[in-house]
Nucleic acid binder design. Structure first.
Length: 513
RNA sequence: CGGGGAGUGGCGCAGCCUGGUAGCGCAUCUGUUUUGGGAACAGAGGGUCGCAGGUUCGAAUCCUGUCUCCCCGACCA
């Protein structure tokens, strides 16, 4: 057990933050860019993002949305229209003020004072206001509703503290924006998209989540309701992995999104917005990574199977490569999880045993090593990334017949997908504590030595305003936040652990990213 | 943005206190021997020490400023 020679030097149990950093560099996901809070996403990391994009986009289209693209620059006055929205984002805006550079007396380039913009442009932190403008133009009648749009874009939020994938100044995301006739339709849609996120997280990323409503203090600036999916990371912290907002008529009023109803009257639309981002990759790392690097769920793995021929720089390599190419073609013809199986024959020179560890760190779900003896025996040496080690601390190879590989691989990949989900779900369930009935108990629970205290499910009276602020302060002292009010929880009885009043609902509290 | 730490070949680090123009391990390249499991030996290449000023005959080393990263806080997807 302890004599396993792991592929990483950092250990999750010793230093989770250092481990997270090491996975990102060792798995070749991304690197620093030299620009504060911005990262270079490398091919393997971007390939994972493209997989997530594809699967999420399919789900968004399947629920009736069309993709659009809106400008990255938003006129300041346009952005200003919704008061709460401005207040929420003003502190983290990048602003464009000039459109030309000029050399100063020292030859240094500076913004040309003569080229100052009449009105500054803000770099979008989110696009409610500019899309609201378009909606106001596009919508005339109740027959135009619902209007269901989505865009894939980059956004910028000038964060004080950044972390690769989890919180970067620039990040990639999709933001859906919809307009509806009334509150009921819009609220229903808000929940429909939350369910899309739940399904994508659990079925595609193999990342179990809890879907629920955010408390008042955690709402998106300008929203009436904010819902989220929350995932538990291996250090017990919560990660908000997607949000869906019912915006009421706040943005409709700010942007003039009105329609003529069936009775001929003018009426404001009820709008929604919802988003998921490259943060999901951070979630995948902290859900599925282990002390040997990343483990990519097959559904989002750019390569699900990697073949490593054991080349020897000798003439017989040619026959081996031909054997591997046949194997590759045969497996490429199969289907996994409803798509063509994605397989790579890695012909890069080098010893297979050394290359193996690169792919282990990257987290390819299945590695097939093929040497001369396999060729003779008609077998392949198969390594599952989700179960790397045998009881003796050696890589746990199996040796199925090559002729069976096409029949075997798709099922194996689907099994790995499920196994990763099951492992994460079991860990989450084991780390949710129920039955805490007082603030003292909660305090004791989170002040103990337990390294991974996980989440607590408690009940509260759903305080608002100043009473909620008081609760938030108490939680803050324990570094805790209310994550959400889970959908479909059992009814409550008894009293609120914060106020002593009759309980109204269950909430999850946790430390969070 | 406050407190702390750090930036030296691709990666991880030493050198800095007590200035004298760089060193180790891994990786890379070449050769030889190996080879069914993260090869060994020999040789070689690669760094104006984050950047900009300053002190000095001389700066990785001392001083000032600045940028970036990490950890803790406040803020947030």
């Amino acid at each position: 057990m302890s004599n396993i020679r792991h592929a990483l030097t950092a250990r999750r149990a010793d230093d989770f933050a250092a481990w997270y950093q090491e996975v990102i560099s060792a798995a070749d996901l991304a690197e620093e860019s030299g620009v504060r809070g911005c990262m270079v996403i490398k091919p393997w990391g971007y390939g994972i993002w493209e997989r997530i994009q594809r699967l999420m986009d399919d789900r968004i289209k399947a629920t009736g949305h069309d993709n659009c693209y809106f400008p990255i620059f938003i006129p300041l006055s346009n952005f200003e229209r919704e008061a709460e929205h401005v207040e929420g984002f003003a502190k983290e805006m990048a602003v464009v003020t000039h459109h030309r550079l000029i050399a100063d007396e020292n030859g240094k380039l500076i913004p040309d004072p003569a080229a100052k913009l009449e009105e500054p442009l803000v770099v979008r932190p989110t696009s409610e206001t500019i899309i609201g403008d378009a909606m106001a133009r596009w919508i005339q009648s109740w027959r135009d509703l619902p209007l269901l749009t989505n865009q894939w874009a980059n956004v910028v939020r000038w964060e004080m503290r950044t972390r690769m994938f989890l919180r970067t100044s620039e990040f990639l995301w999709q933001e859906g924006h919809t307009a509806h006739e009334n509150a009921a339709d819009a609220k229903e849609h808000t929940l429909r998209m939350l369910e899309v996120y739940r399904a994508c997280a659990e079925d595609d990323l193999a990342m179990p989540v809890i879907a629920g409503e955010k408390p008042e203090n955690e709402r998106f600036p300008g929203a009436v309701e904010t819902w989220s999916i929350e995932a538990m990371m291996q250090d017990g912290k919560a990660l908000q992995a997607g949000t869906s907002h019912y915006l009421g008529t706040n943005f409709a009023q700010a942007s003039g999104i009105q329609y003529q109803n069936r009775e001929g009257g003018q009426q404001y639309c009820h709008t929604t917005s919802w988003g998921t981002s490259t943060r999901l990759i951070g979630g995948v790392i902290m859900t599925h990574g282990d002390d040997d690097g990343l483990r990519v769920p097959p559904a989002i793995a750019p390569h699900q199977v990697v073949i490593l021929p054991m080349l020897r720089d000798k003439p017989e390599d040619e026959a081996l490569l031909a054997y591997c190419e046949d194997l590759r073609a045969a497996i490429a013809g199969t289907s996994t999880l409803g798509e063509k199986t994605r397989i790579l024959l890695d012909k890069k020179p080098g010893k297979a045993a050394a290359k193996r560890w690169d792919w282990v760190r990257k987290g390819a779900p299945i590695i097939l090593e093929v040497g001369g003896r396999d060729m003779e025996n008609g077998t392949v040496s198969l390594l599952r990334r989700d179960r790397l080690w045998d009881a003796n601390g050696k890589p746990d190879f199996s040796a199925p017949a090559a002729s069976d590989a096409t029949g075997l691989i798709p099922g194996l990949l689907e099994e790995i997908q499920q196994a990763l989900y099951n492992e994460a779900a079991a860990r989450r369930d084991a780390n949710i504590t129920r039955g805490i009935t007082s603030l003292d108990e909660l305090s004791a629970f989170y002040s103990g030595d337990a390294k991974y205290p996980g989440w607590a499910e408690v009940q509260w009276s759903k305080p608002t305003g100043a009473a909620l602020d008081a609760v938030v302060e108490k939680l803050k002292a324990l570094k805790l936040t209310v994550r959400n009010v889970p959908i479909g929880a059992e009814p409550v009885s008894g009293t609120c652990i914060f106020t002593g009043e009759p309980a109204a609902e269950r909430i999850y509290v946790a430390r969070a990213y």
